[in-house]
Amino acid sequence: MLNLAKIGHFFLHLWRGVRELSGDDAYVQYLKHHAAFHANAVDVAPALSRKAFFKLWQDSQWKDVRRCC
């Protein structure tokens, strides 16, 4: 018999991969990163808003050669 839980798990992973690949979850990752790296700092700037982060993230994506032939 097929293991439904395993199949569900597989699709969950796939969905996470698609989100990560497209940058859909970039803000969530950023918040995690921010919390992890600045957890013990005292006077650190608060995390950026979703809009402000996306702006920075998208602009930094296009600084290098990103597409070729």
């Binding site: 990560e20 690949l21 921010h34 790296f37 070729c68």
Partner: peptide, 27 residues
């Protein structure tokens, strides 16, 4: 050098996807 934006340890399949999408154009 992890800075959460351009330097960031990433799942190998995701990097593979990014890399392939970048190299495979109309050529």
């Amino acid at each position: 050098l992890d800075n959460g934006r351009d330097y960031m340890p990433t799942n190998k399949w995701v990097v593979f996807g990014h890399h392939f999408a970048a190299i495979a154009g109309p050529g």
